[in-house]
């Protein structure tokens, strides 16, 4: 949608709270994500970064606050969440490919049954996307026949098949062997270059430095610090950020 002005606000989060019983995981998070922006979310384990991401497509129901996607309040009881989720692709830490389907079937499933496009069109789109992630030759393989990195690339293709406006990545490389991380990050970098709006929970410093426009640093359910990767990595302001970065560097 090149005819629209580029710094348009895509996601707006206002004072987001999430509790699991007595555990207050998100204690009021507010931020915005612009169109085509790549936002990395970092933070120590238990900081609520995954929960924050999962609230954005309502895999977790927030307890209070507002989330606007392209101006639509997605927490309103009147919206169709299934329809809304078609605009937001999600990639999981554990891939979650459907084991009883081949790669191409995994990719074709949602476009055919949610978008209701024809089988031929879905197949064509699926093959193109598998080509894009470099796995067209594995179209008829089952997920268990693929390596972790290949599975995650198929999972990215599956999410892209819905032609979403936004992509969420929940620690996409933390379940992978080191030599497979690169192939997944390459696909993600390509997406970022093509102007996809992305929110990525990740600690891959190299990728964040190269591809991310902004870093959110979460600790104890609060947005402690945000800024460009250079600002955060080279000149962190907050003690929690300094402490965390000193541990992972």
């Amino acid at each position: 949608m090149s005819d629209q002005t580029s710094p348009e606000i895509m996601i707006e989060v206002v004072d987001l709270h999430k509790r699991f019983k007595d555990l207050h995981v998100l204690k009021g998070i507010s931020t915005t994500v612009k169109r085509s922006e790549v936002v990395a979310v970092m933070g120590p384990s238990g900081s609520g970064k995954s929960t924050f991401l999962r609230c954005l497509n309502r895999l977790e129901e927030p307890n209070s606050g507002h989330i606007y996607i392209e101006g639509v309040d997605i927490l309103s009881p009147y919206i169709d969440i299934n329809k809304l989720r078609t605009e937001m692709g999600m990639v999981f830490q554990s891939f979650n490919l459907f084991p009883h389907m081949t790669c191409i079937q995994n990719v074709m499933l949602a476009p055919m049954h949610v978008r209701k496009i024809s089988r031929d069109e879905a197949y064509e789109r699926g093959i193109k996307l598998l080509e894009k992630v470099g796995l067209a030759h594995k179209a008829d393989a089952y997920p268990e026949q693929l390596s972790g990195g290949q599975q995650q690339r198929v999972a990215i293709a599956r999410a892209l098949a819905m032609q979403p406006q936004i992509m969420f990545f929940d620690e996409p490389t933390s379940a992978l062997d080191p030599e497979m991380i690169g192939e997944v990050l390459d696909v993600m970098s390509t997406l970022a270059r093509e102007g996809m709006t992305m929110v990525v929970v990740s600690h891959e410093m190299g990728f964040i430095r190269k591809a991310a426009d902004r870093v959110l640093f979460l600790a104890d359910g609060l947005l402690v610090e945000e800024g460009s990767p250079e600002e955060i990595f080279n000149n962190p302001q907050h003690a929690r950020t300094k402490d965390f970065l000193s541990k992972i560097l």
């Binding site: 299934n82 078609t86 937001m88 979650n96 490919l97 049954h113 819905m162």
Partner: peptide, 9 residues
């Protein structure tokens, strides 16, 4: 979760 995130009912 993966199925619901894709928009399946």
């Amino acid at each position: 979760e993966a199925a619901r995130a894709l928009g399946l009912s």
